[in-house]
Simulated assay, not measured.
Amino acid sequence: MTRHRSNRPGSADDLLTELGRLATKALEHAELQRARVELAEALQRELLPGSLPELPGLRNAARYAPARSGLAVGGDWYDGFRLPDGSLAFSIGDVQGHDVEAASFMGQVRIALRAVAAFTSDPGEVLSRANDLLTSMNCTLFATCSFVRFAPVTGELLGARAGHLPAVWASTDGCGGVTEDEGGPPLGVVPGHTYPVTCWPLPAPGALVLVTDGVVEGPTFPVEDGLRQVVELVRAGAGGDPDELAAEVLKVADLTGHTDDAAVLVLSQDG
């Protein structure tokens, strides 16, 4: 007597059909994700500046790289532009999140900083006004940022930070370290906040380097270790080509696993 199961599984054809449906769905999802990443990368390239301004005695360079996985892109930026008083402004930052939304918001933050800087060159006031603008928009994202101003007459570099990593500096005589200035909360979080301004060291000859956390921090790589790596690299390359130094600093992301996009900004002053 032949026994029959009451809950008979589907036939082999049914199983293959279901596997095919799931594979098609997964492929469509992968293609959609890849398309979003490619769109974010294209948007990122368009939003980042093609070049940075220079003045006699001050050289600079910047580098950006998406995450190695290709899934984390769109949040980091760097920028540089001339101010009405003849000084130069530079910014670097990181938007919460990734993908197209982060890239779009990054563009809004950059435009806000440039617009505010047209009326005030004080880094703290620039961040305060940009923060008020972003909080008034009820944004769901926020951004960390460092904004610096180089005055060619005095050679001073004034900076303010909004939840961002401190800067790294070094001179050609081997001195260097991490700045210990006071910062404030990220932009778009606390309305009405003021950001203190600090005179950052820019030794002559020497270099000051700003990075986003994708350079120095990973899932199993503490940010303190990453900053120490950057300090050593800046000490070794303070008197050289800023573009080469930016490329070397960006390589620190390989130690972190490069799971996030990363940006580096180098300001170098001749002796």
Rank of each mutant, 00 (worst) to 15 (best):
A160S: 15
P205D: 02
D94H: 11
E41A: 15
D122L: 09
E182G: 03
L245K: 08
A62W: 09
D173G: 09
T220V: 13
L71A: 15
P166G: 02
T194Q: 15
Y195Q: 03
F105V: 02
A103H: 13
L22F: 09
A72S: 15
F221K: 08
L165F: 06
E156W: 14
L134A: 02
L141W: 06
G226E: 03
A89D: 04
V148R: 12
K25E: 04
G50H: 10
D99R: 14
L71Q: 15
A12T: 10
V73P: 15
A115Y: 08
V197S: 07
L141N: 12
L265K: 10
V189M: 12
H193F: 11
S51N: 02
V231T: 07
M1T: 05
L43C: 14
T179K: 08
T24I: 00
A151N: 15
A65N: 02
T144L: 13
G214N: 04
V231S: 05
L165C: 07
L134Q: 05
L113S: 00
A246D: 05
V148I: 05
G93R: 12
A103L: 11
V190D: 03
E224A: 13
P191C: 13
D14V: 13
L43W: 08
G183R: 09
G214R: 05
P152C: 00
L47I: 15
L202N: 07
D85Y: 04
P196A: 03
V211T: 03
L48A: 07
V73G: 14
C199H: 11
V266R: 11
F119S: 04
D14T: 12
G74Y: 00
M106R: 11
A23G: 07
R114K: 06
T135R: 11
H258G: 07
A160H: 10
S51W: 03
C175D: 10
V252C: 08
G239W: 01
